[in-house]
Computed example of a mutant assay.
Amino acid sequence: MTHHNWLPPIHLHPIFWAFLLAAILTGMLMEVMVLFGIVLLHEMGHFLAAWHFRWRIRRVMLWVFGGVMETEEHGNRRIREEAIVVLAGPAVHIVLYAVLFLLRETTAVPEGVLETAYMYNTTILIFNLLPIWPLDGGKLVGLILSMQLPYRKAHAVLIGFSCVMGAAILLYVCIALPFTLSTVSLLCFLLWENRLEWKRRYYVFLRFLLQRATFGPTGVLCTPIFASPDTTLLDILSQYRRNRRHMIVVKGKNAVLDEQLCSDMYFKNKQAHCTVADILQNRQ
C-alpha cells in the first residue's frame, strides 16, 4: 500500500519499545526521547520532500537511533529529485540548530535538555552524512555513481565502497577513539545491511528493470547501446542507466532495437537468455 496523504505512515520498530523500557528503568527517558524526537524530525524531512514529489511511500519505520522511509520508487525517479529527498533529512538539522539557538535565549526549556539536543543533533547529522549505504551520505554517493555508470554497476560499486568505508571507520573507531558500544554496534549493523544488500543485488536490479518497463524511463537524453548479434539480452539490460532513454544499435546488421522491446522480451516473453539475433528474428 502506498500513500500520497500528507500524514506519514509511521511504524515503530519493536526494538523502540525495548529501548523505551530500558530508558525508564535507568533514568535515561529524557535523553532517549530527545534522540527519538530528532530522528523523527529527520525522517519527516525525507517524507515531506518525497510527498511533494508525489512518491509512492510505503511507510516510515523508526528505531531510537535512526529510521528509514520505504518507498516504491526503485531508481527510476530523476536524480535531482532524489537528491532533494535525500538532502531534506540533513537540512532538518540545520533548522533545528536555529530553533535550539532561539530556545537558549529563553527559559522555556531547561539548559540540560538543550545541551543534550545540541549533542544528538550534531551526532545524527554527522553520522548520517557518512558515505555508507543506506545512510544519506551513502545514498548521495550512489546518485553520483549512477550519473556515470549503468544502474546495475553503480549499485554494485556503491555496496562495495560502503563495505570498505564502513570497515575502515569501524577499525578507526576501535583503535583511535574511546570504545563506545553504541557506535561499534551501529557500524556493525550497517556492515551487515550492506552484506544483505550485496546478496540481493540482482533482485534490486530486476526491480529497477520492472519499474522501468512498467512506467517507462525518465529523462530526455537518449544514449545508444551498441551490441553485436550474439550479445545476450541480460548484457543489454545491464547497461540501462538512470534518467536515460536507450536505443540498441546492432553492429553489422543496420538495425535498431527499442529498449521497451528488450524489456518485454525479458518480462513478458520470459526470454532471459536470448541474444540480439534471437530478438531480431522474433521481431520479423
Rank of each mutant, 00 (worst) to 15 (best):
L187W: 03
L233C: 04
Y151R: 06
Q239S: 08
S263K: 01
L206V: 13
N128S: 03
G137N: 08
G45E: 02
S182E: 14
P134R: 07
G142Q: 14
H11S: 13
S146F: 02
T232S: 15
T223L: 10
W6N: 05
K268C: 11
F127V: 06
R104K: 11
L186T: 14
I225G: 01
V95D: 03
G66A: 02
R207A: 13
A156Q: 15
A50T: 05
G252A: 04
V173G: 00
E197R: 09
Y118Q: 10
W6Q: 09
A50H: 05
G252W: 03
Q260W: 10
S162G: 13
V249W: 11
W198N: 08
F208M: 11
A83Y: 02
E115F: 05
T232D: 12
A98S: 13
V60S: 01
L21K: 10
M265F: 13
G216V: 02
M69K: 07
G66R: 00
A88Q: 01
L280F: 08
L129P: 03
H4M: 07
F205E: 03
H3W: 07
M33V: 15
H246E: 04
T183G: 03
T116G: 09
V85P: 01
T107D: 15
V86S: 01
N121L: 04
A272T: 12
V85N: 00
A227I: 06
M165E: 03
Y118N: 11
S263C: 10
E70V: 14
W55T: 01
G137Y: 07
H42W: 01
M147P: 00
Q281E: 15
N76T: 13
M61H: 02
T2C: 01
E31N: 12
A49E: 00
M69A: 07
M28C: 04
G138W: 01
A98Y: 10
E111G: 01
L237T: 04
L20K: 00
L190I: 13
E259P: 02
I248P: 03
L103Y: 06
M165F: 13
H273P: 00
A156C: 04
D136G: 10
I15Q: 10
L186D: 05
H46T: 10
A117N: 04
